[in-house]
Design a protein around this nucleic acid. Structure first.
Lengths: 113, 113
DNA sequence: GTAACTAGTTACCAATAGGTAACAACTATA
DNA sequence: TATAGTTGTTACCTATTGGTAACTAGTTAC
């Protein structure tokens, strides 16, 4: 009588893969900031007003390890560093769009009351 | 020269709203389990093999508070409880689909190497 | 010389998330 | 009477996440 649906198990695995990369308070915001084009450390920090340099540095590293972003160092006179989305990072676009749509919907339905 | 794009700020807010509800190791898996229809406590626990009753109970409560699921108590002889998605819970379908698609894509691209 | 801008690092602490194991109360069945 | 199955709760602990503040190193502008 017990059927552990294999399709359900497959979905649970896929969701874990995705969540491992995306989870946390800052990773999605950083990706969103970079959908507006390559940015420097300080620019991202100004976009996301309340992120500390420690967390930004830490999360940028983890996104780089997971091939979501690339880091490019310019040997200019004050050293500048640019971060940008990889193709894999850009492939989160549809996911981000749905996340934002749902966030707006949720606010209307629940927070708005 | 500094322009903090208002569209970007709006998206950052929307993503925070969504993440607050969805975040954590277990909430998405629980919602996925319930997309297969109303289920009892023990059924969800068997779907998500490694969740403890403590975490399941805790996360079900938080999903209920956020109007994602409903809890229905049946006064049957061994007490049974059924959990099911609300319309708001079902409205995560497109988001979940994109999350799963991306999880599969990510595994192919990175984990698979 | 001093301040400010570049991009971070480091040490320390607090809060939260999650894990483990035992237990509760009730019913049905052997 | 004992066991198993219902849905959880409770206490305790660890690990992860996140926050704060100070600091580094190099260059440029005042």
């Amino acid at each position: 009588m017990e059927h552990r649906e294999p399709v359900c198990q497959f979905k649970l695995m896929a969701s874990r893969d995705a969540l491992e990369v995306i989870q946390g308070k800052w990773r999605i915001p950083i990706i969103i900031s970079l959908t507006y084009g390559r940015k420097r450390f300080g620019e991202i920090q100004r976009d996301i007003a309340d992120i500390s340099p420690k967390m930004l540095s830490q999360e940028l590293k983890s996104l780089e390890v997971n091939k979501i972003i690339t880091r490019t160092l310019f040997d200019s006179m004050p050293v500048t560093v640019e971060y940008s989305l990889t193709p894999l990072g850009m492939s989160t676009k549809k996911l981000l769009d749905e996340l934002l749509d749902w966030g707006i919907h949720f606010r209307k339905e629940v927070v708005g009351n």
